[in-house]
Every structure is written in structure tokens, then in C-alpha cells.
């Protein structure tokens, strides 16, 4: 579904963001992307929806060489790839319904399809009862679920999330992570860049760790601090291990 081959990204100002990344993400999988701030998680996601083009290397998304994609073909890619951000990016002068419908309308969808798809995704994220409400009248968790609904309304094959729980408290974080899990179970490939140890450790899914612009580790059933932390914690409570490390200031949620 997703493949990166020898991908290097250097921003126009000379900043190196990614250095020779090779990785594959299978169709229908759920992947966490972790690593310190500035190691290139967001940059990697941007390559996948062609917000950025790699300086060198190949990026393949759903069989398409995204790095060589002509500008006119980008909308087609974007309809296959839903994206969710930490700050939701909802339009504040539109209701939740309008925000979700907007994403469909601007792709030229027919009213009949809008009327069918919008309730479906609002239902899926549990926001059907708040569809007439404006974003500012909602909690962060609710806004993020609305944003996820918007990302899903085009029926994308892939859902990319850049720190989706970054602005949420633990309860809302769990809700959103559960929601992403459910979406994944329905067959959507989900990639989540995150600093949230709780979310990663709860899910025990594939974890790709970036460090110094490169892939440092790639564990099938990973943990936020790496699976070696499990063995080192030997017999210790996993959550305790996470909390100990968060004491070192590595985890924004727990160090709050």
C-alpha cells in the first residue's frame, strides 16, 4: 500500500528532514510513527499525501509513484488519502455537518452522495447527535472525531494522522485511538505519528521509530519506548515503566 525507497528530504532552506528512508506498510495495517521532535515524522507523512516531494528516492502510495505525480493528478491522490492533524483544521464558520459535507462537495460529489455519506461517517465517529453544532462549541476530542469524519467521508484507502491526540486529555485520547482502531478494522490502512506513549502501548501494533532522520527500529508489536524497554522492565508494570520514563520529560501527556 505504501513504500518508501531510499527517500531523502531536504527542505529548500537546507534543513535535512529524512535521510535514506526505506520502509513498506502493508494494506490494512495500523502503524505508529514515533521519535523525538524534529526527527521527521510529519515530513514523512507529508510525502505520502504529496504536500512535499522527496529530494531523492521513490514514494509509492497505492501503486502510484507519488514523487513523480503531476500536479493535476494530486487531487486524485488526496481523495484516496485522508489526513488528520493535531489542530483539527475545522472551518469555524461551518457546522460539523457542513465541515464534513464540504470535503465531499468540493470534489464535485452529487448531493445524493453527500446526503448518504455524511451521516454514515458522523455515525461512525459518534458525532451524529452533534452535527448541527459549530466546532467552537465542542470539546477537543469531539472536534478531532469530526475531523476524522471529514477525512473519511471520501472513503480513503489510507488515513494519515499527525499527532491526532496531541491536544487531547487521556480520556479523549483513548476514545480517538479506539476510533482509529475501529476504522482500521474496517480495512483502512492507518498511519499515526505520535508522542503519546499511552496510545502506542495500549494498541501494541507496529511501531516505526525515527531517529536522526532515519528508521532506528521497526517492531511488529511495538511499544512507545521500544520493546527492549519491556524486557528491561522485566516483570514490572508496563505503565509504570512508561511513567518512569515520562518523568524524564519524554512524554508530554504524562508529564502534564
Amino acid at each position: 500500500m505504501i513504500a518508501l525507497r531510499g527517500v531523502t528530504l531536504i527542505y529548500p532552506n537546507g534543513t535535512r528532514a529524512l535521510d535514506g528512508i526505506d520502509l513498506e506498510i502493508a494494506k490494512g495495517s495500523f502503524v505508529f510513527l514515533v521519535g523525538h521532535s524534529g526527527t521527521g515524522k510529519s515530513s514523512l507523512l507529508r510525502l505520502l499525501y504529496r504536500e512535499q516531494r522527496p529530494t531523492s528516492g521513490t514514494v509509492i502510495v497505492d501503486g502510484v509513484e507519488v514523487d513523480k505525480l503531476r500536479r493535476a493528478k494530486v487531487p486524485e491522490l488526496r481523495r484516496k488519502v485522508g489526513v488528520v492533524f493535531q489542530d483539527f483544521k475545522l472551518l469555524l464558520d461551518k457546522t460539523i455537518w457542513e465541515n464534513v459535507a464540504f470535503a465531499l462537495q468540493v470534489t464535485g460529489a452529487r448531493t445524493r452522495d453527500v446526503m448518504r455519506q455524511v451521516p454514515r461517517v458522523l455515525d461512525l465517529v459518534g458525532m451524529a447527535h452533534k452535527s448541527r453544532v459549530f466546532p467552537n462549541e465542542l470539546s477537543g476530542g469531539e472536534q478531532q472525531r469530526a475531523a476524522i469524519a471529514r477525512a473519511l467521508v471520501n472513503n480513503p484507502k489510507i488515513l494519515l494522522c499527525d499527532e491526532p491526540t496531541g491536544n487531547l486529555d487521556p480520556v479523549n485520547t483513548n476514545e480517538v485511538v479506539d476510533l482509529l482502531h475501529r476504522i482500521n478494522l474496517k480495512g483502512t490502512t492507518v498511519v499515526v505519528a505520535t508522542h503519546n506513549a499511552l496510545a502506542v502501548d495500549r494498541m501494541r501494533r507496529r511501531v516505526i521509530r525515527l531517529e536522526h532522520r532515519q528508521v532506528l527500529a521497526d517492531d511488529e508489536r511495538g511499544l512507545y519506548h521500544g520493546i527492549e524497554s519491556e524486557s528491561r522492565a522485566d516483570g514490572e508494570d508496563l505503565a509504570l515503566a512508561a511513567r518512569v520514563r515520562s518523568g524524564l520529560g519524554q512524554d508530554p501527556i504524562l508529564s502534564e
Binding site: A72, V83, F102, G108
Partner: peptide
């Protein structure tokens, strides 16, 4: 600009925008 950014993100065509 926010509206335009969203349109680009969700795959509106250049002409539509």
C-alpha cells in the same frame, strides 16, 4: 486561505478551487 487549504487537502481539483 483556510478553506482553500482544506479543499486542497481533501482533493478538490485546481479548477474547482
Amino acid at each position: 486561505r483556510r478553506e482553500i487549504a482544506i479543499m486542497q487537502l481533501v482533493g478538490a481539483s485546481g479548477t474547482y478551487i
